[in-house]
Amino acid sequence: MTRSGEVAFQDLQVNGVRLHVAVAGPTSGPLVVLLHGFPEFWYAWRHQLPPLARAGYRVVAPDMRGYDLSDKPVGVEGYKLDLLASDVAELVRAQGRERAVVVGHDWGGVVAWQVAASFPNVVAKLVILNAPHPKAFRRELARNPRQRRKSRYVALFQLPFLPEFLIRRMLPNVAEFFRGTSTRPEGFTDEDAQRYREALSRPGALTAMINYYRALVRFRPVSAFPRIDVSTLLIWGEKDVALEPGNTEDLHKWVPNLRVVRLPMASHWVMSDEPVRVTNLLLDFLGAPASTASPAEASGDNEMLP
């Protein structure tokens, strides 16, 4: 195990792959699993990891399979949604726990929805950030031409080689990509950009990341998507360039125990645009363990990792 400031790093073998995992907080604390999205890695949670850990939670943020320092299975079939959900369930068990709060952003949110559907006994609470419920997303694609236009990149990602080529050409300007789609561009520093460049440049990473999209189109999950009964918080940055706000509407028939918080001035990168607000929402929803700091005290002021 290696350490950097408040965060330690482990390599864990789960579900046939090795996952590189950032961990923080007391080992006896309630377990929170943070799942990043595309094209990020554990570092997407840089603002939330330290305050959650100081509030008394055991926080685990993996590089999901295919990303950064985790294994990158060869072939599209290695990125089926059912496999990604199984990774998370086994990761919880690898921490010696039966259940965890599962938090997911973007693709991590897609996987978190599937974990709650396929392994309901593993999920103590569910938090989703800018990732649509599967049925809501299908509804929006059918009725909203703006969502169809915003989702055209998914069709591009089905092509061989070309998406990898285009993203590779973009790597020198990765800072501009994040800043240009964020409502708080200063939230992505030059150091952040360098970390993302390094993660995206690892051998096999670009193909693995894009294979998430390819597998989603080619392979459907094994079972139909059931009702999610666990207590759920949906945090949504309304200035998302890829997802329409309609994805947050009329969800209670599928997720009856749901709270929706819309952040009008946040983009898709909601954890970076409003880091303190997101951290406080998480702590409030989780219910901070006894004798820990209040949400405002725990979150700090735009807290991030060194």
Rank of each mutant, 00 (worst) to 15 (best):
W42Q: 02
I167Y: 02
P163V: 08
L52Q: 03
P160L: 12
V261R: 05
F9I: 08
E6W: 07
P185Y: 03
A205F: 02
E191M: 01
P39F: 02
A53W: 04
F157G: 01
D190L: 12
P51W: 07
G204M: 10
V278L: 11
V111S: 01
V102H: 11
R169Y: 06
K72A: 05
N130E: 12
V255M: 09
R54V: 06
I128V: 15
P30M: 14
T183K: 08
L81C: 09
P73R: 06
F177W: 07
F137C: 03
P51L: 13
E297V: 11
D273Y: 00
L126E: 06
P203A: 14
Q10L: 15
V127N: 02
R143G: 02
P275N: 08
R46T: 00
P134K: 05
R259Q: 15
P120D: 11
L305V: 00
F177T: 02
A44Y: 00
T207P: 06
T27W: 13
H105W: 05
L31K: 10
L31E: 11
A290Q: 11
E98P: 07
R143I: 06
R65K: 15
A293Q: 05
A224Q: 13
H36I: 03
D190C: 08
F119T: 06
E140M: 03
R58E: 11
P51R: 04
